[in-house]
Nucleic acid binder design. Structure first.
Length: 435
DNA sequence: TCTGGGGTCCTAGGACCC
DNA sequence: TCTGGGGTCCTAGGACCC
């Protein structure tokens, strides 16, 4: 059995380029939420020496004269385009499971080297043709080795976006050329420990004894070691719904006013409820956290969180928002400059397993709420998030002159691209003709 | 001035019970 | 009241991923 890892090349950058073909050979970067850090770079941007993760202001300082195309992140667009990519992949490999927004593993039936290579070449061309997204494919006997293969598929143009590791010789050779910090499951901390022990490549690591690895890294490191040595031990699909859902944001500048903070928290809570409904779950615990800017050493620092347990687990916007508001009230302290806030829902279970509390349960109210949330979700999907909201999600304060103060979005998205796909796709879905 | 967001898994240690 | 071991459950924190 072989695994094929299909991985979008510079995913977010490629998504932006689908609708901006003029940027094909230009340096392009995509920024994180709030236009904070660089989260994706095109090949040309990497060649300029732009490091991943640097704050945007440093990018401007370091490359004042370069012609770099900069985009704010546009997750609706990326979600839509990658969904199309996944659809095409699934048509070529029925045993496919998505691993992240831009990666999927496929399980291949027994095939010869030539057949696997041809399958990969063909799929790569097909995805590019139908979606405009360049992908690379790595094929090997374990998922970790497939990751290694996809690294070489991207790195050397000679592979034509598809690299197959199918013999012991190729496995050893590729591990010798694979830096230890690139290994899936070995992060920064482990890398520094390993380099101190004289380990530079994946091959150095895989050549040590299993006991030695277990002593240093316990179970996770041992799994990685086994995978590199050709023993498949990472389970395939996990379609389990998420165990916790979090929506949080940093603000541009800071927030000191309770009402403004409450508005943000209400919106995050509403997003959590929407995500719960999307995965057909309910949650029993709502947590809210707030913190000040840790980089501002000149300002007093504050961090706190609070949780609220719902009498009956729920995914109703109104209930999650109410719980979040109570939490915020209990931790808000006047006088601090808040930089970030978030809502986490936990104690998640399937929505058909609802355990009602007879003190709390009102069937009529419950059914009305379900219908209302369904309609709100639909309207927001078609017309964009926050088309329909609770009043508490909006900031309405009459100023002294009687005019309503408009709630300014504290999240910055200066360079956000349009969403050419979203509306079209929703109409298609609604009329019952999916892509 | 500006420094991301959203997850998962594992482990150690504390609380509690018998 | 004290003594001790062992089991379970929960939580915080670390490490990692994309």
């Amino acid at each position: 059995m072989y695994f094929a890892l299909c991985d979008c090349d510079n995913c977010y950058v490629s998504c932006e380029r689908v609708f901006r073909p003029d940027l094909k050979h230009k340096p392009v970067v995509v920024l994180s939420n709030n236009d904070g850090c660089v989260v994706a770079r095109s090949k040309e941007a990497k060649q300029l020496g732009i490091k991943g993760g640097i704050p945007y202001y440093q990018l401007k300082e370091q490359f004042p004269n370069e012609d770099i195309a900069v985009f704010s992140s546009n997750y609706e667009l990326y979600g839509e385009l990658t969904a199309r990519v996944m659809t095409v992949i699934q048509k070529s490999a029925p045993q496919m499971f998505r691993y992240s927004i831009d990666e999927a593993f496929c399980i291949l039936p027994d095939m010869s080297y030539d057949e696997m290579k041809e399958w990969g070449d063909c799929l790569q061309k097909k995805v590019l043709k139908y979606t405009g997204m360049p992908i690379s494919i790595g094929i090997a006997q374990t998922k970790t080795l497939a990751k290694v293969a996809s690294y070489f598929a991207k790195k050397y143009t000679g592979y034509n976006h598809c690299c197959v590791i199918d013999t012991e010789e190729k496995r050893i050779k590729s591990l010798q050329l694979y830096p230890i910090n690139e290994v899936w499951g070995i992060g920064r901390k482990h890398t520094s420990r390993l380099t101190n022990l004289g380990i530079q490549t994946a091959y150095d690591f895989a050549s040590h004894s299993k006991d030695w690895v277990h002593n240093i890294f316990n179970i996770i490191g041992t799994r990685t070691w086994m995978e590199l040595n050709g023993e498949n031990c990472i389970p395939n699909e996990k379609i389990v719904p998420k165990k916790s859902i979090c929506v949080s944001r940093s603000f541009t500048g800071h927030v000191t006013d309770f009402e403004i903070l409450r508005t943000h928290v209400s919106n995050y809570a509403a997003r959590c409820a929407e995500k719960l409904r999307k995965q057909h779950s309910i949650a029993s615990i709502v947590t809210v956290f707030v913190n000040t800017n840790r980089f501002r050493e000149d300002l007093p620092q504050y961090w706190n969180s609070s949780e609220f347990t719902l009498l009956t687990p729920s995914n109703a916007t109104q209930e999650i928002v109410q719980a979040a508001t109570k939490c915020l009230q209990s931790i808000f302290v006047k006088g601090y400059h808040y930089k970030k806030a978030g809502v986490v829902v936990m104690g998640i279970m399937a929505d058909n397993a609802i355990q009602t509390n007879f003190l709390d349960y009102d069937r009529n109210r419950f059914e009305k709420q379900v219908k209302l949330d369904e309609i709100v979700d639909l309207l927001n999907r078609i017309n964009g998030t926050e088309t329909v909201t609770l009043v508490s999600q909006q900031y309405n304060q009459k100023a002294k002159n009687g005019k309503t103060i408009v709630f300014a979005d504290a999240i910055q998205h200066q360079f956000k691209s349009k969403n050419p796909t979203t509306r079209w796709n929703d109409i298609v879905t609604l009329t019952g003709h999916p892509l």
